[in-house]
Design a protein around this nucleic acid. Structure first.
Lengths: 244, 244
DNA sequence: CACACAACAACTGCATGCACTTCCTTGCAC
DNA sequence: GTGCAAGGAAGTGCATGCAGTTGTTGTGTG
């Protein structure tokens, strides 16, 4: 019933920490997650760390390959697009389930959340991205449908990974307005409008995020062109070997 | 990329075996899965068995509770209904992705599968249920979208659990016809029709399976009434303590 | 005879240790 | 200086052992 799979609370604590780190872009796609370092950091044995990594892998946030260090997942462009398609349908189900059924308490909480997003608008981009994601997850939680919650949460978190890979700087202005629109439609009990607003919102997010085409990387030599001049300032500094 | 989470192949072998056992109703909701017995049966240590159980739990097929023996999940009636709602949307995405894009080879395979379902019609119900489920999973595989496949597979397998809990005897006749209709619509490239046929099919399955209302179980005493007369023949023999 | 309770068996939670693989570094040949 | 191979460091795969929990059975008491 609880849909809680992370039995021992120690493994789930690691999962939460890593999820949050991904959400806040402290961990980026490809970053390494060695199970012993992880265990040491959290004061548990490799067994637990390993268990947590397995859990995260099943959520699609981490990639496990035999005999290799686990890494934060690196979604491909197609996967990112497909993910959003799924997410749109799932969140349509969320608003459908919620429409006109929100308690006063829940409405207040959602409005408070939107307000917080508002306040974070000029703050760090990391915070507003986290708040935006949490908005969607909170909605899914309110349905009380465990599977729906799980899938929405997973796709939402993976969306963040996609954004980290392909996304341009997140402009939260319109997103907040759209969140408010969703809340209003839910309160008004206008199912059709709520669903289309939500779908439109997510489509907009996906469009903004995945604007650039898969960039077929015409020729490797072209890519290397700006690097040709030795000691020239290089646009994006290459990161290597990131880890916990 | 592989979306494969079951790294060591030994754990994945256990997962597959249990999934199949659930599909074929060899394992029923509530059946116990002690990790040491599991390990012994598959010739691995508890560590691996435990890992497999964690994986299955994340798929919603198994319930883990701290310090307790893992059991095959027992979906509630509401969960079953919600699950089907999700599944319908997911499989609509599947046919949308597939419509008019099937290779000749894939078309043949699907037709062959339908034929096999046809042949199994008069055989054991277990086989036809398995084939019916595999049909949906095969479709999802053909999309090449890893997340979509994972979610369809999970919901499909959990549907079997719901059917085992609430379903009446599975009548596969119409199901096969509906599968054929889906194939035809896909081949014809009629997206709208394909999606509505698939949605209708799943809705029909859900309706047939979950026909009986949540049965509020008016009073516990009423339920026990037929058992009141000592030594009277009892309609449904109570099963206790099933296990691997 | 019903019931509380104690002892035991079964099982899980977790850390640790060993074997094996991967990956990096160093050193050597060219 | 370059290519490459061998050695070692780092990390994973897995079994096992022990501590703690749960469930059950048998026993004594009102």
């Amino acid at each position: 019933m609880d849909m809680q799979v992370e039995h021992g609370d120690r493994a789930s604590a690691i999962c939460r920490a890593i999820r949050r780190a991904i959400l806040e872009r402290a961990l980026m796609p490809g970053d390494k997650l060695p199970e012993d370092q992880l265990g040491e950091r959290f004061g548990v044995s490799r067994t637990i760390a390993r268990h947590a990594l397995g859990q995260l892998a099943s959520e699609g946030l981490v990639e496990l390959r035999r005999n290799r260090i686990a890494v934060v997942a690196t979604p491909s462009f197609e996967e990112a697009r497909d993910e959003f398609d799924i997410r749109i349908e799932l969140e349509r189900l969320v608003v459908r389930a919620l429409c006109g059924r929100l308690s006063q308490r829940q409405i207040e909480e959602l409005r408070a959340h939107a307000l917080e997003e508002e306040k974070a608008r000029d703050g760090s981009e990391v915070v507003s991205l986290r708040l935006a994601t949490e908005f969607h997850v909170r909605l899914a939680e309110m349905t009380g449908k465990p599977t729906l919650l799980r899938y929405v949460r997973e796709t939402a978190y993976r969306s963040c990974l996609s954004l980290a890979t392909f996304g341009r700087p997140h402009s939260s202005d319109c997103a907040i307005a759209e969140h408010r629109e969703v809340i209003d439609a839910l309160v008004a009990g206008d199912e059709t409008r709520a669903m289309s607003v939500m779908a439109g919102h997510l489509d907009e997010v996906a469009r903004r995020a995945l604007l650039q085409t898969p960039e077929p990387r015409g020729d490797l030599m072209d890519i290397l062109a700006p690097y040709a001049a030795v000691d020239a300032p290089i646009p994006a500094p290459k990161r290597r070997k990131r880890s916990v």
